[in-house]
């Protein structure tokens, strides 16, 4: 579904990613762990198409209708319409734009892209309310401006709500667990687990093993200094939890 080949990327001419290789197939959950500054968030932003990052080498191939396309050639909105989703580490507040209006606009873009009929505001709000229940979110958020006056936990739930609404093929979760208490994390993880299918995939970026108790990955990759230095099964996360990163990074240097 997604194939990252020798990906190098920089911001303001400072290299951050230094040769990432990663293949994600449908039905898989991949976790990326790594110490601060290793390039985890950069990877997620490059996949989503953030304009501040420049890809200097390598490519990302993404499968659309059984054909491989060059993901880096697509505008961020086109990537999203092709089923790519990024749950932000720091969801952006958008004053003046209501959650309901925003989500309906996003949802209808996908409908349009797939040649389906667009949903009117009344039907959409019903659909939205159902999905909100799934994440134990208060209906009052519907009319509020996107993420404005939301607590940290509410913002993260709102990201997963969007994931549920947009129903992507590949979802990248960037430190979705940061700032969440244990109850919120369980709700968020449950939400994600309910959305897991044979034909979609998840890339879970996290600092701690904690989230991976709830969203159990098929593969765990350790990112360090812009490269993946180790890839194993879910037990790798446990080792990191026990020993930290030093044994890996030390072994490398």
């Amino acid at each position: 579904m997604l194939e990252i080949k020798n990906l190098h990327a920089s911001i303001n001419e400072i290299p951050i990613l230094k040769g990432i290789n990663l293949t994600i197939n449908p039905g898989e959950v991949h976790a990326i762990m790594g110490p601060n500054g290793s390039g985890k968030s950069t990877l997620s932003k490059v996949i989503a198409g953030h304009p501040d990052y420049t890809v200097t080498e390598g490519r990302i191939e993404y499968e659309v209708n059984f054909k491989k396309v060059d993901l880096l050639e697509l505008e961020p909105a086109e990537r999203a319409r092709e089923g790519l989703f990024l749950a932000f580490q720091y969801p952006v507040e958008i004053p003046g734009v209501s959650t309901s209006m925003f989500l309906r606009a996003a949802f209808n873009e996908i409908c349009k892209h797939q040649g389906a009929e667009e949903m009117d505001p009344i039907d959409f709000d019903e659909y939205l309310k159902k999905k909100m229940k799934l994440l134990d979110m208060d209906e009052k958020f519907i009319g509020r401006a996107v993420n404005v006056d939301f607590s940290g936990g509410e913002k993260k739930r709102n990201e997963i709500l969007q994931l549920a609404i947009l129903n992507p093929r590949l979802a990248v979760l960037d430190e979705t667990d940061s700032g969440l208490d244990i109850d919120s994390m369980r709700i968020v993880a449950d939400g994600v687990n309910k959305l897991r299918r044979k034909d979609n995939a998840f890339l879970v970026i996290t600092h701690y093993q904690r989230l991976l108790n709830y969203i159990v990955p098929d593969f765990v990759h350790i990112l360090y200094d812009g490269k993946i230095i180790k890839s194993e099964g879910k037990e790798l996360a446990m080792k990191v939890e026990e020993k930290g990163y030093d044994w890996l990074t030390g072994a490398k240097s």
């Binding site: 198409g49 953030h50 086109e78 999203a80 990024l86 952006v92 989500l103 996003a106």
Partner: peptide, 9 residues
């Protein structure tokens, strides 16, 4: 950018 990642050009 946030809106772009949500399919809105």
């Amino acid at each position: 950018f946030y809106l772009q990642t949500r399919c809105i050009d």
